[in-house]
Design a protein around this nucleic acid. Structure first.
Length: 424
RNA sequence: GGAAAGGUGGCCGAGUGGUUUAAGGCAACGGUCUUGAAAACCGUCGUGGGGCUCGUCCUCACCGUGAGUUCGAAUCUCACCCUUUCCGCCA
């Protein structure tokens, strides 16, 4: 959520931001008009309420019954007018909320300006794209061949874009989760285990609702929503709280499955396990003071990169353009890992500084010192990492000519094997 | 799922229609006293919105949430949510 005061005082900045994001700026003028209306009515309504409060007190002290009744009649009329104004206010505020809650965050000026992903900038490539003396196979070929991935049975159980992991396939994923969480802990993130079902307000605070309703799974019976990322529950861990300055930064790491309807990317990446309706992820999340969010952003990016380095995977860092940056983010780096089988750079992490955007929606504040005014914190989130695509990268990068896959050293203890052997 | 009790500021807790401007206490913070500390005493001590004369200012809202009754609601009515205890069920 943007600060209404910024919308009011710097409307042109907000308008330009919407245009840079390749978003519509149509609602802006309505918002400004509603804001003026709201304050006019509020002012008059408050004057009436003040009058009624004062008069009601008088009535309580009046000894004369007739005079009392006359005053009551007057106040009945005032009450009617208050009701009218409040009906108006309710209507205006609902509309104002509806419109402002769909405005995206203001971009960091360092983000390249451009309408879509074509304007993203690759800032670095770390490592060499591996070469093979045979033609590397794609994971959708290798996985079933080694008995790691079973696409048919996933479809049988649920439908398209669901799959089953078997044996060492399942074990490899579990190993990655344990490896990630241990690394996060060493990097200063506290592990949390969270509900995978949340209520509507939790999704609103994280910025998923109302705008991205179509991409979420919802249980109508209980009015619960399946989390699309751990970012959603973590954002609300401190919802409505005022944190002590000494408690910041607060860094969390959580493993959760993520559920996405993928309505917005229907038809894209249907092959393999790159884009399912359910996938696992370890997420990093930080609450900090505003002046520290840039440093925390760099730390989180470095922490995510460290994961890929330890796994010996080649990756590149992208700075996302205005038109490709997520709704709540001010600045986002994507990490993309090289998959030599399908010959693609796969996004395994997205590391964003969200500023006070989610903190305002979730009402998370901190106090610099006793007696100081509570201020909104900044929040940051980053994948650390998405599991299926990391699995793809490992399978495709560590495959050998005979069809077997070497397990990267840091995972061996967790998997309990050094190699996934080809089947006879 | 059933029954009962409950939900008031950071915490405890009073408040059943108007002297409440949410009492009182605890904790915290500032001060006086003290060689220092404790004690005692004095003071400060919620969030959000709006206004202008921008202040140690005025005003509105908020006592789980939402409606309702009333000139006036923390207080009365209705619905819902949550917590605790007991019962049932269950990994």
């Amino acid at each position: 959520m943007l600060d209404l005061n910024i919308i009011r005082t710097q409307p042109e900045r907000v308008r330009q931001n919407l245009l840079d994001r390749n978003d519509s700026a149509d609602s802006l003028d309505s918002i400004l008009a509603l804001d003026v209306q709201r304050r006019e009515i509020l002012k008059e309504n408050e004057a009436l309420r003040a009058l009624r409060n004062a008069t009601s007190k008088e009535i309580g002290r009046m000894p004369d019954a007739a005079a009392r009744e006359a005053r009551k009649a007057e106040m009945r009329e005032v009450g009617d007018r208050i009701s009218q104004y409040e009906g108006e206010l309710t209507r205006i505020e609902a509309e104002l909320d509806r419109l402002t809650s769909t405005l995206p965050n203001l971009m960091d000026p360092r983000a390249p300006i451009g309408p879509d992903e074509s304007a993203n900038i690759v800032t670095r490539i770390e490592g060499e794209q591996k070469t093979f003396d045979f033609k590397p196979r794609e994971h959708w070929d290798l996985g079933p061949a080694l008995g790691l991935i079973d696409f048919e049975r996933g479809v049988k159980l649920t439908g398209s874009r669901f799959y089953v992991l078997n044996g060492l396939g399942a074990r490899l994923q579990r190993a990655l989760i344990a490896f990630f969480l241990n690394l996060r802990q060493a990097q200063g993130y506290q592990e949390v285990y969270l509900p995978f079902l949340v209520k509507e307000q939790t999704l609103f605070a994280a910025g998923q609702l109302p705008k991205f309703r179509d991409n979420l799974y919802h249980d109508a019976e209980e009015d619960y929503w399946l989390v699309p990322t751990a970012e959603v529950p973590i954002t609300n861990l401190h919802g409505g709280e005022i944190l002590d300055a000494e408690a910041l930064p607060r860094r969390y790491a959580a493993y959760t499955p993520c559920f996405r309807r993928e309505k917005m990317s229907a038809g894209k990446d249907t092959r393999g396990i790159k884009r399912g309706h359910q996938f696992d992820k370890v997420e990093m999340y930080t609450f900090c003071a505003p002046e520290n969010s840039e440093a925390e952003h760099q730390k989180m990016l470095a922490d995510a990169e460290e994961t890929l380095k330890r796994l010996g995977l080649t990756y590149r860092v992208k700075l996302l353009a205005t038109g490709d940056t997520g709704f709540g983010a001010r600045l986002t780096y994507d990490l993309e890992v090289w998959a030599p089988g399908c010959q693609e750079w796969l996004e395994v992490s997205s590391v964003s500084n969200v500023g006070d955007f989610q903190a305002r929606r979730a009402n998370v504040k901190f106090r610099r010192e006793r007696g100081a005014k509570a201020e909104l914190v900044h929040t940051l989130n980053g994948s650390g990492l998405a599991l299926p695509r990391t699995m793809i990268a490992i399978m495709e990068n560590y495959q050998r000519a005979d069809g077997s896959i070497i397990i990267p050293e840091p995972l061996r203890a967790f998997v309990g094997a050094d190699v996934i052997e080809a089947r006879g």
